[in-house]
């Protein structure tokens, strides 16, 4: 909106008037407020949400990571870095971290790769293209626990079509019992849930590539495969980089619901991710101190990961 303030007098020789150009010695680009507290007041709702739902719990987690709390929360003892050393030296923690790494790599890779493949193919569909695209985006509207439930049905021991399908090849899937089978189901469901998001971004990225650049490439390069890797893919890199961060975060944190449904909250010897372990130790094991220490480690890890991603990858990404 344009500011409506009295002209500062730069409109030569004219009577006092409301002016869009000369507002209090500044041009109209900068809107001046009557009180210097006004802009802060506008920011307050957003800032308070960040403070209440992010900063405060984070600070609380950092605090309790240094304490040993009794299971009922009546007393707590300061134990310094004990929670951290316990966590880092535990072989169980190492195992879960390892699984989380593998899980994240698999989920990120396959959800990006499949979404890219689908987007490239959908971009070339001429007839009924929008129907096709809408169908591919549908899963996006499914909430993670619901996706987990649908996934569970597909992988069900007795009625799951995917289990039956695997049986055709002599693979007796035992979700929730066999470590590998359970991990497999988790990865498949997580990838399936994430593909639509990536698909939407990749598709809009593809449509953002100049048509004449693609035509120039058509003339310069016969092989569609080569053309994709030398022209289309590099030009999609900004989208891909953004999605990489989104997907790593997704695999780390947002798969919680899916994992929970697959495990039916009974992990036993089954694989869990670090985030799920935080929940297990804190709320099932009542070890709030250890759980907090793990969250703090996760926070640090994500922080470092983000810096590495921006430093290393952004340098090689072309932003047009």
């Amino acid at each position: 909106m344009r500011p409506h303030f009295p002209c500062d007098g730069r409109c030569a020789g004219s009577a006092p008037h409301i002016c869009h150009l000369h507002v209090r010695g500044d041009t109209m680009k900068k809107v001046q407020f009557n009180s210097r507290w006004m802009p802060y007041a506008f920011l307050l709702p957003q800032l308070s949400i960040v403070a209440i739902f992010f900063l405060w719990p984070a600070a609380e987690a950092v605090r309790s990571s240094f304490y040993l709390e009794d299971p009922f929360g009546f007393s707590s003892t300061f134990v310094g870095f004990d929670n951290f050393t316990d966590t880092l030296t535990s072989s169980n923690y190492a195992r879960v971290a390892q699984f989380t790494a593998v899980f994240t790599v698999l989920v990120t890779f396959f959800s990006l790769a499949l979404a890219l493949l689908l987007a490239v193919k959908a971009d070339k569909v001429l007839r009924a293209g929008s129907t096709y695209k809408t169908l591919l985006m549908w899963v996006y509207a499914v909430a993670p626990p619901v996706a987990g439930l649908i996934g569970i049905l597909l992988f069900d021991q007795h009625v799951g079509p995917l289990v039956d399908f695997a049986a055709l090849f002599g693979w007796k899937m035992q979700i929730g019992v066999n470590y590998f089978d359970t991990s497999f189901a988790m990865v498949v469901i997580s990838v399936w849930k994430q593909i639509p998001v990536n698909f939407i971004f990749f598709l809009s990225g593809l449509q953002g590539i100049s048509r004449s650049v693609q035509e120039a490439a058509n003339i310069d390069c016969r092989s569609g495969f080569r053309r994709f890797w030398t022209v289309t893919f590099p030009l999609l890199a900004p989208t891909g980089f953004f999605l990489l961060i989104i997907n790593v975060t997704y695999a780390f944190f947002d798969t919680f619901g899916i994992i929970d449904v697959v495990l039916k909250t009974e992990p036993g010897n089954n694989p869990v991710t670090l985030v799920y372990k935080v929940y297990l130790d804190g709320f099932r094991g009542n070890d709030l101190g250890g759980s907090s220490a793990q969250s703090v480690l996760l926070m640090l890890f994500v922080f470092i990961l983000t810096i590495i991603q921006f430093r290393l990858i952004e340098r090689r990404v072309h932003y047009s």
Binding site: S210, S212, V213, E215, A216, A217, I219, V231, P234, L235, A237, H318, S320
Partner: peptide
């Protein structure tokens, strides 16, 4: 072919 908007490969 020489295109109107040049169609150079930006990367």
């Amino acid at each position: 072919m020489v295109f109107q908007n040049y169609a150079l490969y930006p990367h």
